[in-house]
């Protein structure tokens, strides 16, 4: 769905985006952020966009969306308040969402500016250069196997990446060992169904116990996915890093 092939980065006086520009206008005009004069800020904002156009800068669509938002809020505030209409009980200031976004943006902008002041590795401070190639071992702890006690956090994506790394390095071109697989997905799912019948809850690892080779593990895993797809069972993990369980679903 999301296809962003062309990217425009507009930086007029180095504004990171419409929020940055708006914030700049608010600060420059010493406006009260909780009571922004919409007419004035909309006008100034649109002027800035015109200036960009004049400079032949492609205006990022985000800037235009913000322009539309500003005009929309402005027009909303011009509408007379009709207290009789029951739907309008909660008189929400149409500016509130924008103001919240600006305030939130300001917090992160400020946080980022202060983070930027921190001494940065390879810019301000230096440590002994890496001996380890990033591609070989994931930096987040893969290099320290004995750190398990320290709670090395390895996410699923890291695991998958690591596995992918290993698999891609396997030079299998020299040996073509062909396995005759007697173990089909159908058989695997039968075995799994049977196990689920006997036990109301099955730890993930138990699905694979007593499967001697890699091919069978893969077949079993496919069978497991298949059963989930068919709503025969579901896979549950209650807490991060907790054991993954397979539960049968009543059908």
């Amino acid at each position: 769905m999301v296809s962003r092939v062309v990217k425009y980065e507009i930086k007029l006086d180095s504004f990171e985006g419409p929020l940055d520009l708006l914030l700049h206008l608010v600060v420059k005009n010493e406006m009260d952020i909780n009571d922004i004069p919409m007419a004035s800020i909309t006008e100034q904002y649109l002027n800035c966009l015109e200036e960009m156009e004049a400079k032949n800068i492609d205006i990022a669509s985000e800037f235009l969306v913000m322009a539309a938002t500003l005009v929309h809020i402005k027009s909303k505030m011009l509408l007379p308040v009709t207290p009789e209409v029951p739907e309008e009980v909660d008189e929400v200031d149409p500016r509130i969402e924008l103001v919240n976004r600006l305030l939130e943006y300001q917090r992160y902008k400020d946080g980022a500016a202060r983070l930027q002041q921190y001494p940065q590795l390879e810019r301000d401070v230096f440590s002994r250069p890496e001996n380890i190639n990033y591609d070989d071992i994931d930096h987040d702890g893969g290099a320290q196997l004995c750190d398990v006690a320290g709670g090395g956090d390895v996410g699923l994506f890291e695991l998958v990446n690591a596995l992918r790394g290993v698999l891609s390095k396997l030079d299998e071109s020299h040996c073509h060992q062909v396995f005759k697989s007697n173990f089909s997905v159908a058989e695997a799912s039968d075995r799994l169904r049977e196990q689920l019948l006997r036990r109301k809850q099955l730890p993930f690892a138990d699905c694979f116990s007593a499967l001697p080779n890699r091919a069978e593990v893969v077949v079993m895993f496919i069978a497991l996915l298949e059963l989930v797809k068919l709503h025969v069972c579901k896979i549950v993990q209650l807490n991060p890093h907790a054991t993954i369980y397979i539960y049968p679903l009543c059908s």
């Binding site: 952020i33 305030l103 400020d110 946080g111 921190y118 001494p119 940065q120 590795l121 401070v125 930096h139």
Partner: peptide, 23 residues
Amino acid sequence: SGYFLEFFGLKDLSGLPNLREFS
């Protein structure tokens, strides 16, 4: 990532600058 902490010389995430409230 863990490297983020190394990059900014942080012991852990609590070492990040405190976010200031502007509201």
